[in-house]
């Protein structure tokens, strides 16, 4: 059973924190297809957030095809997110890179900024368009990830970026 940690000062919408932590649990293999997510009641009892926030997060995960709600039974994982198990060789390479960054005199913030810049270059966020879009007050960024909706259980689909 996953446990959600809500950081009230992160500036990230609460429902999005639940979505991101679920995705993270799927990536790390803490959740696998068939596993049941905690019920809204269990989440709100532990985190003291509004029930609608949890339901909104679960709807978003369902929209992404990651989970499915089964009436009267709960919400279950449909597929896992592949790409970065903790023991991937990429982990070691990144570790090496971080070691070199430290040796080159970069501190934590410099390193994070550099990594974020590369991340943004290779994985641009769909909602952060480069041209200054009409700056309207927007609802919290709803990520629209173009992902296949019908995927056989148990397969990992997100291609390794490498």
């Amino acid at each position: 059973m996953v446990e959600y940690r809500i950081d009230r000062r992160s500036g990230v919408a609460t429902y999005l924190q639940i979505v991101q932590q679920t995705r993270q649990a799927l990536r790390l293999g803490l959740l696998e297809p068939g596993d049941k997510l905690p019920t809204a009641r269990e989440v709100v009892e532990a985190t003291a957030v509004n029930p609608n926030t949890v339901l909104k997060a679960y709807r978003e995960l369902e929209r992404e095809g990651l989970v499915e709600a089964r009436r009267g039974l709960g919400t279950f994982v449909r597929r896992s997110l592949g790409g970065a198990p903790a023991d991937t060789p990429l982990h070691g390479e990144l570790l090496e890179w971080a070691t070199r960054a430290r040796a080159a005199g970069l501190d934590r913030e410099d390193t994070a900024a550099l990594f974020a810049a590369v991340l943004e270059e290779k994985f641009p966020q769909p909602h952060a368009a480069p041209e200054q879009a009409v700056p309207q007050p927007q609802p919290p960024p709803e990520r629209t990830l173009p992902q296949p909706q019908s995927v056989p259980h148990g397969t990992t689909t997100e291609g390794d970026p490498a």
Binding site: A40, R41, V44, E45, A46, T47, A48, V49, N50, P51, V54
Partner: peptide
């Protein structure tokens, strides 16, 4: 506070 708020939210959810 956190516990009681959790209890209240659980009531609201259920």
């Amino acid at each position: 506070r956190n516990r009681l708020m959790g209890t209240l939210m659980a009531e609201a959810a259920e």
